[in-house]
């Protein structure tokens, strides 16, 4: 069994890691979103990481264009970039494609980093996998940070604009911000709209993909 490493305080986690924390229960590590939706927003977050590291840009025609072929530091981003370099598609195709696999990849990254512990429980017919956080305060940090900044009216960093936008895309922001206060929601919307074009496009396209997932027949 994997034993979580002592990690100390984690503050500058990549957006996909923060999102992973936010969509899992802090208490028992259970996934709180529908797997399809979780896959889509995590795919958006990984593409966002590549945009933030300067590897990728999103054109006005929604195409994901690779601008730097320097290998990213992170293995998961590397594998996503490999896909992006091999074929050319609009983001509307990439999101559902990546959504198939990214959940497991980000989860593995979290496990490797010692942030969560994977636990598998078997019941009568079902198998349930949970990712219990190794450190409660690290797990709570993303929403505490977002909520605090929004309440104070501070400007959000670009990575938080991405994170906030993705939370709105999956309609999870109200739960995360634990707030019925319309002002917090509106501030988040306002802040997310100030993000650079590529990030805003990515967030918008992720929201569109989630909406399609809600409206499907299957």
């Amino acid at each position: 069994m994997l034993v979580p490493r002592a990690r100390g305080v984690v503050r500058n986690a990549p957006p996909a890691d923060d999102l992973f924390r936010l969509i899992h229960s802090e208490r028992d590590g259970q996934l709180l979103l529908h797997p399809d939706v979780a896959g889509l927003v995590l795919a958006g977050a990984l593409l966002g990481e590549l945009v933030l590291t300067g590897h990728l840009t999103i054109t006005a025609a929604y195409e994901a264009r690779v601008v730097s072929r320097m290998p990213p530091n992170d293995a998961v981003c590397h594998s996503v970039l490999d896909h992006l370099m091999r074929e050319t598609h609009p983001v509307t195709i990439w999101l559902p494609f990546l959504a198939h696999s990214v959940y497991g990849q980000v989860a593995d990254r979290m496990v490797r980093g010692g942030h969560v512990v994977r636990r598998e429980t078997r019941r009568l017919l079902t198998r349930r996998v949970t990712y219990r956080p190794a450190d409660m305060s690290n797990a709570a940090w993303p929403w505490a940070r977002l909520l605090n900044r929004l309440n104070r009216g501070d400007e959000l960093a670009t990575s938080d604009q991405l994170l906030g936008g993705l939370l709105q895309a999956c309609d999870w922001h109200r739960t995360v911000l634990q707030s019925r206060d319309i002002n917090v929601t509106e501030t988040l919307r306002y802040e997310a709209d100030k993000a650079p074009d590529a990030i805003r496009l990515l967030v918008g396209l992720t929201e569109a993909a989630v909406r399609n997932a809600v409206n499907t027949a299957t």
Partner: peptide, 10 residues
Amino acid sequence: DGAAAAIAPL
């Protein structure tokens, strides 16, 4: 515009 409305402001 269906789902594309999400990218409306852009």
